[in-house]
Amino acid sequence: MNQHNLDKNKLAKLEDYLAGDLPPAEEKQLRQELATDRDLAKTFELLKKIKSQHRFQETESRLRKAMERPTGKYFREEKSPYIFRRGVFIAIAAMALLLLVSKFIFQESDVVSSLAAEYLSPPQSLSLFRSGESQQGGQQEQQIIQLYEAGDYENALKLMKDLQSRFEAEHSSEFYFDLGILQLFANHPSEALGSFQNVKTGHTFDLQWYRAWALLFAKQNEEAKAAFDELATQPNPFQKEAQQLLEFLP
């Protein structure tokens, strides 16, 4: 009997035989055929298996149901400690990174800002105009003073730079000190450092004090600390402030 082309009559007989419904004569004949026809014998074995396997279906379902509870209890996916779970780990790592970045970006500048608010104040007046060295700006000088006194350092700086470009040959150490002060308070610390470098005479301690601040704002922390340290270790108007500052500087 071809395995894919089953003889339906034979199959019916095999079924009847299994059910004990086959008349004795036909049963005898079928037995003889089973003994000689290998394919028929195989189909008969398969039929028996199908029936017994089908009976097991109910048992299998019952068992699976009975195993549900202990399976849930004993085969739980072992969770790693809370901190090592992927999502939590990523969140913590991101927060740590943010904190680390903010430490450099924000925290340090916050400290500097709060120290500046407490210890840094601009000179009472611009020394250039106080000393009367420069008389050439005229009206523009008055504007710079007004802006400076009003705390508008950015616009004062613009006019100062304009003055610088128009009277290039006239600049003294006083001019550069004032320019540096405006640059410092207009938040251009690197430019201020450049201007302070051109101060050749005078302003011994106040130059050092404002230069140290410019270094701090320019994030040249070590140089700034060294500059404050010089002021802190010798008698000068800024000594006490310099000492206090050094206590708080990060």
Partner: peptide
């Protein structure tokens, strides 16, 4: 009976293939 035999033949065919 005929239906049962046909269904059984279909099942055996599925299994064997």
């Amino acid at each position: 009976r005929k239906k049962k035999t046909l269904c059984l033949a279909a099942l055996i065919s599925l299994i064997k293939s």
